[in-house]
């Protein structure tokens, strides 16, 4: 049998999350096909065919797939599932929105946000990462979402076969109206090598300029705690945590973040954590490799100057 990996893409480009999902799928030891479901998505399909370890790239195009609406994705994947015993996708909001639909239609339990695969046993964090559950399927097809920060890129140099399929999609009851996407030239949060995040201590959205300056110097992505997003300092897509994005960069710099359980769940797998907080009792210092007890409004300009001294 085989595994169907669903591509993360925006039609014109393929996200690295796809390659990382393929690398997770390799652990199952079956053939791997990639589904590119979109509209005008040939560029994404071509990129997918170059991922190492892929047998075929199946492209399905439809108006309702342009933004991968959940109801249309369910219909598309269900039309293909006869040939597969597992369907796997990244645990981004696109895939989390429809994968449970597929699981219900297959009468199986979705295995969500997997961080490791060993034979037929899947590792997944529960309780905001305060426990790890090891689960296996009792039979039937498997529906799996993976936390891509836990898997490496699959490499390129692949030469997968390409095929196009058409799928009939009826009235879904859902209509796309509009999108307001955050525009940024910085790296994507979940794939960045360095992430610098601000918390409630930033005090305002304007003050995030202090973080932006340093992020631009370091080529870092900018994140935030739930408190900073709830306070309206930055948009929702900045949120790192149990219910936001999970990141695992080489360096995570937490500024003015106290370190609530739900924030730690999204960043504690970072290789190195640095924290700047004026409260020496802040829980963030219990997970930080390097802690600086300081007023961030003094420390950030100093950090900017120190980085300039070493060539940034």
């Amino acid at each position: 049998m085989a595994t169907l990996v669903v591509a993360e893409h925006n039609n014109t480009s393929l996200s690295e999350a796809t390659s990382k999902t393929v690398s997770a799928a390799k652990a199952l030891g079956t053939d791997i096909d990639i589904l590119v479901a979109g509209q005008g998505a040939s560029a994404a399909s071509e990129a997918a065919a170059q991922i190492d370890g892929v047998r075929a790239v199946i492209t399905v195009e439809h108006d309702l797939l342009a933004r991968q609406m959940p109801e249309a994705m369910e219909a598309t994947i269900m039309a293909l599932m006869d040939g597969y015993d597992t369907v796997m996708a990244a645990d981004t909001t696109t895939h989390k929105a429809y994968m449970p639909r597929v699981a219900a239609k297959l009468d199986t339990q979705q295995i969500s946000s997997v961080t490791g695969i060993d034979g037929d046993v899947f590792e997944r964090p529960i309780y905001a990462g305060n426990a790890l559950a090891y689960v296996k399927s009792t039979g039937g097809k498997k529906v799996v979402t993976v936390r891509t920060t836990a898997f490496p890129l699959s490499g390129d140099g692949g030469s997968a076969a390409s095929e196009s399929k058409s799928v009939e999609i009826g009235d879904t009851g859902s209509t796309f109206v509009s999108e307001e996407l955050t525009k940024s030239d910085r790296p994507e949060l979940t794939g960045a090598k360095i992430v610098i995040s601000g918390g409630r201590g930033m005090g305002s959205g304007e003050n995030f300029a202090l973080i932006d300056t340093i992020a631009d110097k370091l080529g870092a992505a900018v994140g935030a705690s739930r408190a900073a997003v709830d306070a309206g300092y930055v948009p929702n897509d900045y949120q790192v945590g149990q219910t936001g994005k999970a990141v695992a960069p080489q360096l995570y710099i937490a500024v003015g973040i106290s370190g609530a359980i739900q924030h730690l769940a999204g960043m504690k797998d970072s290789k190195v954590i640095a924290a700047i907080n004026k409260d020496e009792e802040a829980p963030i210092f219990q997970v930080a490799d390097y802690g600086l007890v300081a007023d961030l409004f003094k420390a950030l300009p100093e950090l900017d100057a120190e980085l300039a001294k070493i060539g940034y």
């Binding site: 305060n130 399927s137 009792t138 210092f285 219990q286 600086l292 120190e306």
Partner: peptide, 22 residues
Amino acid sequence: RLTIVKVTEPKTREAGVIVETV
């Protein structure tokens, strides 16, 4: 549809050092 093989504590991170200056 799933069997729980086991539930474990995650690896804990050790607190590092406090530095004095930027």
